[in-house]
Write a protein that binds this DNA or RNA. Structure first.
Lengths: 341, 341
DNA sequence: AGCATTATTCAAAACGCTTTGGGCGTGGCA
DNA sequence: TGCCACGCCCAAAGCGTTTTGAATAATGCT
C-alpha cells in the first residue's frame, strides 16, 4: 500500500493525502479525518526510502565503531550508551545506524557517510584530548554531538559530559575525610580525555590537603578486570602501600576486590575503594547497600541527552552548539571505611 | 557531486557511468577506467537514499531492542554481538539499524519496518522457547536470522546457535571426572531457550553417571553479579552444600567467586566452578591460566555468522534457510580442581 | 453585484539513482 | 555486398515521496 494507491481509493490527490498525514494546515479538517482513518485502516506507512530521497534527510543518526584496538572496539558502556541514544532518537523518528571501521579509517567513513547521505548526524564517543575527528566533522558540515570533551579543541562544538574532574575530586576528598592519605588512582587510558580529567580531579582533591600522591600510586590502562587486579596487586606489595584506591570503572573495581581479598585484606576495612560507576544495566551497583562506594553517573542518561541535542541540531543546524555537563552523585557503599590505625 | 554532474564532466550518459561503477559488463574497459578514476578524483559516492529508492533495498539490516524489562534491555552480550554483525554486514555494504521499543510492541515495530521499507532483513536475539516473533517475520516476508533457537517452533527458519546442550553436558562430565557429584546449576532465565537447553544438557550429563541433581541445586534468573552471589551464597548454606557450580555467565561467576570467598572457601580447591564464557571483549577470561574454567563460545563470532547468513538470505530469499551450530570449547582455568575429601 | 481574499485541492516537478529498451557502428560470415 | 550479431552507449522511464505553483470553490467586503 503506497501513497498513490491510498489516494486513489480516497478519490484525492497524493498531495492532499501527504499533507493530511503530515499535519500541514492547508487541508480541511473533515478530509484530514477521513485520510487518517483510511491510513490506519489500510496500514499505510510512507516509504522511508522515498521520503528520504524527497526530503534530503535519511532519518538515521550514525555511530562509528573504530577498531583501534581489537579488544577495545567494544567498550563496556557501548550497550547502555546506544540504548540511551536510541531511546530518544527513536521517539523523534530517527534510528541509529552502526558502522565499524579499521583503525585510522574513521575520516574516510565520515566522508562517505556524508557524501552518501546515509546519516543526518553523528554521535562521537570516547574523544581523545586532541581529537581531530571534531575538526573533520565541522569541515564536512555534519551535525554531531560528542560524548565527552576534547581538551585541546578550542572551536565550539556540541557535547555532553560528566563532570569527571569534580567527581574524582570529591572521591579523593571523601577518602581524605575518612583519614586516608595514601590513595591510589587506577585510571583508564590517559590518552582518553575523560581519564585525563579524572586524574586532574584526583590530584586537585589531594592538593586541597596539601598532598601530592606518590607517582607509584598511579596506574593507567584499559579498564578490565585483569588490569584492575594487576594494578592493585602490584601496589599492595609496595613497601608503603596505599590504604585506599580510586578505580575508574566498576569492572576494574571487581579486579581490585579480587586482589584485595587475595592479599588477605577486606574492602571497607583495611582497604577502602571508590569506583566510578557508569550505572550499567548488566552490572548493577544498586543494592540496598551498594557493593562499592562510587561516583555514579548513568551513561544511558548521557546517551539520552546526546540524542536530544543531536536531533535539535539536525533540525536547526545554525543554532549555537549545546553543551551539557552532568554531575555524578557520590553514593556510599560497603567498600569504604575509616582508616585503620 | 552527483551522478549527473559526474557524467556531465565525463561527456558520458549517467547510464554508462552508473554501469561502469556498478561493474556491469556492457561498458568498454577504457571507459570504465576513465570513469572510476574520475569518481575517485571527484570523490563521487552514489547517494544512498536515491539508490535505495531505485533498487527497492535499504541496505540496512535491523535489530530491535525490546525493553521487556528495563534492566534486561541491554544484556551484556549486546555490544560484542552487534560488533560481530556489523563487522561482516558492513563488508557487504549493509549497516546495522537499531530501534528500541516498549514491551509487547515488537510486532508493531516489525510491521512498520517492513511497510516503511526501512530494513532489508532482521537479526533476532534471545528467542524464547515458544517465540511468536518467528511466525510473524515469516508472515510479513521479512528475511531474518535468529541468534539461538526456539524449541517449540517447528517451521524451518535460519538460525545460528551454540550447542548449549552439549556444552553443559561436557561441563557436568568434566566436574564428575574430578570426583564432584553435588553439582549445582546457576542458570539464566529458563524462559529463554538457551537456558532451557543448558539445563537439559546439565541434567543429561549428570544422568550419564546415574545422578539426578537435588532440586535445591538449581537456580534460574537474570545473569547478574548479584544474582550469582545470592544463588551461590544460599546454596553454600544448605546442610549438604554443592561442591561445584556451573554458572551460565562469567558475570554471575564473578558473583559466585565473591560468595565463595566470603564463605571462607577457595575456588579451585574446596569449590569448583565452570562458567559459560561468551568471550566478551571487555570481560576477558583469556589469561595464561584463565580465571575460570569455562565452556567458551564467542558471541561476536556468532554475530559474524548471522550477518553472513542474513546477507545471503536477502540476496537469495527463496533459498533454504541456513543453520549453524557452533561448538563451545572447554578451557581449563583456575577455578576447578579435584573433589576435596 | 463585483472584486479581493481565503480555503482547499490538484497536477507536475524534483529528489538522484538504477534499469529498460533501444540505437548506432563495427566486424564476421555467407 | 548484405545481413546479423555484438559491443558499447544513451534517452527515458521508473522508484514513492515531498513540495512548488496554480487552479478552483467558497467567503468576505464594498
Amino acid at each position: 500500500m503506497n501513497l498513490k494507491e491510498l489516494s486513489g481509493r480516497l478519490g484525492l490527490s497524493s498531495t492532499t493525502v501527504s499533507r493530511a498525514l503530515g499535519g500541514y494546515p492547508e487541508v480541511n479538517a473533515a478530509t484530514r479525518q477521513r485520510v487518517t482513518e483510511a491510513a490506519v485502516k489500510f496500514g499505510y506507512q510512507p516509504n522511508k526510502r522515498a521520503r528520504a530521497l524527497a526530503t534530503g534527510r535519511s532519518f538515521n543518526i550514525g555511530h562509528v565503531l573504530s577498531a583501534s584496538n581489537k579488544d577495545q572496539l567494544v567498550n563496556p558502556i557501548f550497550g547502555d550508551f546506544v540504548a540511551g541514544v536510541t531511546e530518544v532518537s527513536g521517539a523523534s523518528g530517527y534510528s541509529l545506524s552502526l558502522t565499524v571501521t579499521d583503525p585510522g579509517q574513521e575520516a574516510v567513513v565520515f566522508r562517505r557517510l556524508k557524501s552518501e547521505g546515509a546519516v543526518d548526524g553523528i554521535v562521537l564517543q570516547a574523544p581523545l584530548m586532541d581529537d581531530d575527528r571534531i575538526a573533520l566533522l565541522h569541515d564536512i558540515e555534519m551535525p554531531f554531538v560528542v560524548h565527552g570533551r576534547a581538551t585541546h579543541v578550542t572551536d565550539p562544538y556540541a557535547w555532553v559530559d560528566v563532570n569527571n574532574k569534580r567527581a574524582f575530586e570529591r572521591a579523593a576528598q571523601f577518602l581524605l575525610d575518612l583519614g586516608h592519605e595514601r590513595i591510589a588512582l587506577v585510571n583508564g587510558d590517559e590518552a582518553m580525555d575523560f581519564a585525563y580529567r579524572r586524574r586532574s580531579g584526583f590530584v586537585a582533591g589531594m592538593a586541597t590537603r596539601g598532598i601530592i600522591p606518590d607517582p607509584a600510586y598511579f596506574s593507567s590502562g584499559e579498564m578490565t578486570e585483569a588490569n584492575g587486579y594487576d594494578a592493585v596487586s602490584r601496589m599492595l606489595t609496595l613497601t608503603v602501600p596505599p590504604t585506599a584506591f580510586i578505580m575508574s570503572s566498576v569492572i576494574s573495581a571487581i579486579g581490585a576486590r579480587r586482589a584485595v581479598q587475595e592479599a588477605g585484606l577486606t574492602l571497607g576495612r583495611e582497604i577502602s575503594l571508590i569506583a566510578h560507576d557508569d550505572d550499567l544495566s548488566y552490572l548493577s551497583n544498586r543494592q540496598t547497600v551498594p557493593m562499592f562506594t562510587a561516583v555514579r553517573s548513568s551513561v544511558r542518561d548521557a546517551g539520552r541527552h546526546i540524542a536530544q541535542i543531536l536531533v535539535d541540531q539536525i533540525s536547526n543546524p545554525t543554532a549555537e552548539p549545546e553543551n551539557k555537563l552532568l554531575e555524578a552523585e557520590l553514593v556510599v557503599g560497603a567498600s569504604t571505611g575509616p582508616l585503620q590505625r
